[in-house]
């Protein structure tokens, strides 16, 4: 592949066609600049901050470290595509209720990462939460409110599970 070829991405449930993009473009650049998907945030462009986190075929990835053309055919899910019910809704609502959002720039990446984490490890303890979220940087909250929000989601879901089991 060289410059300017056409490929298809599957973004938040919709097929999208990318044409004329530079072959070296990251998924982050293509999502934001070519497709107008601003639910992913652009901050460090070095895979360090997590603001551009997406699910790529179900795996958490920093979209600035993924070659867009190599995501041809893969399912890309941003915070906007996580859905409006269930866990993703609970994570968003609890972030608001617990004050885990200040300037909000890191929030889309955090919501994707937290949803991924709680899908895989619903009962993760505080140490595991901190380790699993280390790839997402927040410069406002000091993380206390974010961890508290994640734990609040865990408690609510545990209560829900108990209720469903009865």
């Amino acid at each position: 592949m060289s410059g300017g070829e056409t490929y298809r991405l599957h973004v938040d449930g919709f097929p999208r066609t990318v044409s004329g993009a530079w072959i070296g473009d990251s998924l982050l650049t293509v999502l934001r600049d070519a497709l107008g998907v601003t639910a992913v945030k652009d901050a460090c462009e070095q895979g360090r901050c997590g603001a551009c986190s997406v699910l790529l075929d179900g795996r958490l990835a920093a979209s600035c470290t993924v070659l867009a053309a190599d995501a041809d055919g893969a399912r890309v899910v941003t915070v906007a595509g996580l859905g409006t019910v269930g866990l993703a809704r609970a994570v968003r609502a609890t972030f608001l209720a617990e004050g885990a959002v200040q300037c909000g720039f890191c929030t889309p990446g955090f919501v994707v990462a937290v949803t991924d984490l709680l899908t895989r490890r619903p009962d993760a303890d505080a140490d595991e939460l901190r380790e699993a979220l280390a790839g997402n940087i927040c410069r406002c909250t000091g993380y206390g409110r974010i961890i508290a929000a994640v734990q609040a989601v865990q408690r609510d879901r545990a209560v829900q599970r108990d209720r469903d089991a009865r």
Binding site: G47, G50, A61, A62, A132
Partner: peptide
């Protein structure tokens, strides 16, 4: 190595 995001990729 790195973060979950980096280890996955």
């Amino acid at each position: 190595v790195g973060s979950v995001q980096i280890r996955n990729t």
